[in-house]
Design a protein around this nucleic acid. Structure first.
Length: 617
DNA sequence: GCCGTTTTCGGCCCGACTGTTTTCAGTCG
């Protein structure tokens, strides 16, 4: 396992996993093995790049990274390698560290395969393993058989496809798919309750498989009904407690069924996250309790499986009582990532300070300040599809008080300055007329623009144009590869303009397509706090940007955010809920989110000044 | 190796599934 100086979190996670695997093969203390494994998972899920934490000497802030591992990582960042790890890897075939990345192969199998098949070097190791499997050599190894050989072939295929990382659905897509199936499951009377589970229930930005649970007294009927779902491509697995299918669109759906009396424990268990559940069980253990998907029992009772469901197990119909039994307040699924929510829930239950936040909700949202209409102002890119009027109708139906029309700026290359000013005057007049025409309806329309931030940090409209607008959303739409320093300078220069109130989709990421650009968040957050600028939580499905971890940072520092949909059609206005989900995952309360304010306050905040009487009446 | 309002020593999450097994080891979530 080679190490290089500039490793990212994923690579470091793999390195730690390799150390764990090496220790396991060498029969090192099992808790040491587990410690490295835990650290690997923690690094994978870390919300900051370790390199940055190392710069700030904060490596030990990652849970499960203690003195020893931090010291090793320090050596890694300083010298590009870790002598101790090299010692650990000594005597083990490089190839095994390739193999452990294949689903279904753990350290022991990886080692055995590498040794017996004499595949030692990392290069081409997986290809050689595949050849060995296909020629039937693996089935002959003791402990392996035909089936494991086949499984390895499947595993390699999945690995090569990158099935683990890519190919994830974005949250809104998965959510809608799940709700179709949930509606179907609700059609039969045996279905008492149906929920999403796993990352979907926790509202993670990207989802692998769809997990759904049903409370039912007749599990077999429910499962049969599920397996009769019309859009099934194939049935992968059918058991007593659930089933797995592949849909026609290639997506995997797992169903879990449970009787209503144990439903709460099951819901809790399969919602995860894994880290959250592990931490819960550790706490339960100290209270002499053991948790499982069936309920809570005293640890003194080591019952064999057939005694499951004996009265000694305390069952839970819902999750609230489950958490209560552990001495904590109910934890919303969005927070269950073991990033401090358990400690907060314990404090809250004891009536102490520092409890769980009261999370912002969709119903708190009073308006959307980033939508695009089809008004003709010859924008540089991506015009909206629907009229101002229809967007407003939809917004009113959603219960909003205001909308901000933020079309892209007219392209600078195609227009003279005067043309741009004329187009923006036309837009201002249109908007004002619109406000004026809504005599008795209390609904307001802001006149805004989403302006490109040029690589220099200049804004892509003429200086005179600023006076024609209520506020500006500044966004990066080009040159994503600038260095962190240059990008930070670029963004801060744009934010410094007094009309700029919002930094649009702040990291520029496109889920599954493009990593975000790098920014010095210390500086950006500091600037926003000091000068009262808002970071956008863009709810568009492949953006969900700010990411939840940065929302959390912003919340910690008191930087305000605004949840916008970036809608280009009326239908997209209802994407707001996914932006709210991101905010929740970042622990945001109503007060952290600017567009929970009613119109009057919003108006003051963006320094529009009170609207003139003519435009208000 | 990590971690701590019951501990700086002495613990460390739980169960299912699979495949290969005559009683269990490895992997996964």
């Amino acid at each position: 396992m080679k190490t290089t100086k500039k490793m990212n979190n994923q690579e470091i996670s793999r390195l730690l996993k390799a150390v764990s695997g090496a220790y396991e093969v060498k029969k090192e203390n099992q808790f040491k093995v587990a410690a490295y494994d835990k650290a690997a998972v923690a690094v994978e899920h870390a919300t900051s790049e370790l390199k940055d934490l190392w710069d700030d000497k904060k490596l030990e802030e990652i849970p499960s990274v203690g003195k020893s591992i931090a010291a090793h990582l320090d050596e890694l960042f300083r010298t590009g390698k870790v002598k101790h790890f090299e010692q650990v890897f000594k005597g083990l075939p490089e190839a095994m560290f390739e193999f452990i990345n294949i689903p279904g192969i753990g350290p022991k199998s990886a080692y055995k395969l590498a040794i017996i098949l004499k595949i030692t070097v990392a290069k081409q190791a997986i290809r050689k393993l595949l050849l060995a499997a296909k020629s039937g050599k693996i089935a002959q190894i003791e402990g392996f058989g035909e089936k494991s050989q086949k499984q390895i072939i499947e595993g390699i295929k999945a690995y090569q496809k990158g099935a683990t990382k890519q190919n994830r659905m974005n949250l809104p897509y998965a959510d809608r798919l799940a709700h179709e199936i949930m509606a179907y499951l609700s059609l039969i009377p045996e279905t008492l309750r149906v929920d999403t589970l796993g990352s979907l229930r926790r509202k993670v930005a990207t989802i692998g498989d769809i997990d759904i649970s049903v409370a039912t007294r007749k599990p077999d009927k429910t499962i049969d009904w599920f397996l009769a779902y019309p859009k099934i491509h194939k049935i992968v697995e059918k058991g007593l407690s659930g089933a797995t299918i592949i849909l026609n669109n290639g997506r995997q759906v797992d169903l879990r069924v449970q009787g209503p009396d144990s439903y709460g424990a099951m819901l809790q268990y399969f919602t995860g996250s894994k880290q959250h559940n592990i931490h819960l069980r550790e706490i339960a253990l100290k209270k002499g309790l053991s948790l499982s998907e069936y309920g809570i029992k005293p640890t003194s009772l080591r019952q064999p499986a057939e005694l499951r469901g004996s009265p000694k197990i305390q069952k839970f119909t819902g999750e609230e009582k489950f958490y209560q039994r552990l001495g904590m307040a109910y934890i919303p699924p969005e927070l269950r990532e073991d990033t401090g929510e358990i400690e907060a829930a314990l404090r809250q239950a004891k009536g102490k300070e520092g409890g769980l936040p009261k999370l912002v909700e969709l119903k708190n949202i009073k308006g959307d300040l980033h939508v695009h209409s089809n008004i003709q102002i010859e924008e540089s890119h991506d015009p909206g599809m629907d009229s101002i009027a229809s967007m407003v109708e939809k917004a009113k139906a959603l219960g909003y008080e205001y909308l901000g029309f933020s079309e892209h700026n007219p392209s600078q290359s195609q227009h003279q300055e005067k043309q741009i000013l004329d187009l923006l005057k036309y837009k201002k007049e249109t908007i004002e007329q619109y406000n004026y025409s809504r005599v008795n309806n209390v609904f307001y329309v802001f006149n805004s623009l989403e302006v490109d931030i040029k690589p220099s940090g200049e804004l892509a409209i003429p200086e005179k144009a600023f006076d024609l607008l209520d506020y500006i959303i500044a966004s990066v739409h080009s040159e994503f590869n600038l260095s962190r320093e240059k990008m930070t300078k670029r963004v801060l220069r744009a934010l410094a303009h007094p009309k700029v109130k919002i930094l649009g989709h702040p990291t520029g990421r496109l889920l599954g397509k493009r990593e975000g650009y790098e920014l010095n968040w210390e500086e950006v957050l500091g600037f926003c706090l000091k000068h009262n600028r808002w970071l956008e939580i863009n709810a568009f499905p492949d953006r969900l940007d700010l990411p939840d971890n940065l929302v959390r940072e912003a919340v910690k520092r008191g930087v305000k955010m605004i949840i916008n949909t970036d809608s280009h059609t009326t239908a997209q206005l209802s994407l707001m809920e996914y932006g709210v989900d991101v905010a929740k995952r970042g622990w945001a309360t109503k007060n952290d989110i600017a567009n929970t304010q009613p119109y009057d306050k919003m108006c003051n905040e963006i320094k529009k000044g009170p609207p003139s009487l003519t435009s208000r009446l």
